[in-house]
Nucleic acid binder design. Structure first.
Length: 288
DNA sequence: AGGCATGTTACAGG
DNA sequence: ACCTGTAACATGCC
């Protein structure tokens, strides 16, 4: 599912539901993910309490009270469900509609003493779950080379200009690269460049100051808006009552090939091109 | 049937 | 040692 806003929506939801809960048991239903789920996950989580749920880029960090952290990445199709086993008919789902046909892709189940269950489900198996020592977190290979959080103060004009001047990349690939700014993915980068009226193929050192400024401003604006609306940079996103995510309805360019540009004064059509093996959508008219 | 899909990373070549 | 681009991972949908 996930780019930064979706992961943040999951984080907020988990943080309010599972903090303080004590783990009764863990079942590894299918250990085959991007990395094999270690048997230690089952052993080390048992009887432990959840302290907090944090996020770094697209990673979820579930802090456990034995100085360990469960590092979760949702890959392309990872989903987390919370089920309420005290309710016999309807399950409590936190962000997705839980349906039976999804069950074959369940990988991990954490049962809590209060009868809530957390389920990690992943169709394409690009996600992963690792248990690591909390103290080693910052030096862990998956987190080591991440750039600043786009919503933090360190992602600002001065920083971005400095990095843009030193890079030969096009701006599309630059913003997708987690070492420059961490948490953006294909959909949001398309949307950010449209809103900033910048052609995705433009080389970063050629960007004008006002364009760099626009990227910073629009990145924060778009991410915040999407988090507020519940995130949904995914085709199969369903809210808790089955409705489409709001952000999906407000995508300006992504997946809109040949449709007309949504800017009122523009009559251009959205084009689709390939940049670095990923689809880029943009309006030729607005993004010169 | 074949192409495409929200992400990451190992690898080859410059 | 750095940078850049490509292929690979697994499954489902159109």
């Amino acid at each position: 599912m996930p780019e930064l806003p979706e992961v943040e929506v999951v984080r907020i939801s988990l943080d309010t539901i599972i903090c303080g809960l004590k783990i009764k048991n863990v079942d590894i239903l299918n250990k085959k993910l991007r990395y094999i789920i270690s048997a230690n996950v089952k052993k080390d989580l048992k009887k432990q309490k959840i302290i907090s749920v944090k996020r770094r880029a697209k990673f979820l960090l579930v802090n456990i009270d034995n100085n360990k952290t469960l590092l979760i990445h949702l890959g392309m199709t990872g989903k987390i469900f919370i089920l309420d086993r005290t309710k016999k008919v309807t399950f409590k789902t936190s962000f997705y509609y839980y349906s039976n046909f999804l069950r074959k892709h369940n990988h991990l189940r954490i049962k809590f003493f209060n009868n809530l269950e957390l389920i990690y489900n992943d169709v394409r198996k690009f996600g992963f779950i690792k248990l690591i020592k909390t103290n080693d977190l910052n030096n862990h290979s998956n987190l080591l080379n991440l750039g600043p959080e786009p919503l933090s103060k360190s992602f600002n004009f001065k920083y971005l200009k400095f990095k843009c001047l030193k890079s030969q990349k096009n701006i599309k690939n630059f913003l997708m690269d987690q070492k420059y700014v961490a948490g953006l993915g294909n959909i949001y980068v398309n949307e950010i460049l449209f809103k900033s009226s910048i052609n995705p193929r433009k080389i970063t050192f050629k960007l004008k100051d006002f364009e760099i400024c626009a990227i910073v401003k629009n990145t924060k604006k778009i991410l915040k808006k999407s988090i507020k609306e519940g995130g949904s940079s995914i085709r199969d996103f369903k809210g808790t009552s089955g409705q489409d995510g709001y952000f999906q309805q407000s995508l300006m360019v992504y997946d809109r090939e040949n449709q007309s540009c949504k800017k009122k004064t523009c009559k251009g059509k959205i084009k689709k091109i390939n940049i670095g093996n990923r689809s880029s959508f943009f309006c030729k008219n607005c993004q010169k």
